[in-house]
């Protein structure tokens, strides 16, 4: 059984790229979300094995979404997607309950490494 993934990013470009990387590695992308609140809602609905979460999103940001999801499911496996220069935000996200993070620009191998770490 392949792992299921929920991909959260406000950019279709990013969602597509992450989805492609994960799908090519045999993961099943079961849903996408473009805002934090959508991410929370989809998580409850889909119960994915893994969530990739952009930090900066409209509506509800990624970090607040992490808090909400972890409140709902303390075992949620969330991988943050961050850009360079977001040290403080990444630290905050991990304190909020995210398991790991990858840094843009994405290299498929780095993304998959992080995913394995989170799921392992």
């Amino acid at each position: 059984m392949s792992h299921t993934v929920l991909v959260c990013d406000d950019a279709i470009f990013m969602r597509t790229m992450i989805s492609d990387i994960l799908a090519q590695a045999g993961f099943e992308v079961v849903g996408e979300a473009e805002t934090g609140s959508q991410a929370v809602e989809r998580y409850k609905q889909l119960k994915p094995d893994l969530v990739t979460m952009d930090i900066v999103m409209p509506d509800m940001g990624g970090i607040d979404a992490v808090r909400e999801i972890v409140k709902h499911d303390p075992d949620a496996k969330i991988l943050m997607c961050s850009a360079m220069g977001q040290q403080a935000l990444v630290v905050e996200a991990i304190q909020a309950g995210a398991k790991d993070f990858v840094v843009k620009p994405f290299q498929p191998s780095r993304v998959l490494e992080a995913v394995q770490r989170v799921l392992g």
Binding site: A11, M14, V56, P58, A83, K104
Partner: peptide, 16 residues
């Protein structure tokens, strides 16, 4: 909002 949009463009451009 502008910050988020520019930030997104930055991330996408860096990836490309």
């Amino acid at each position: 909002g502008i910050f988020r949009a520019v930030h997104t463009v930055k991330g996408m451009a860096a990836t490309m």
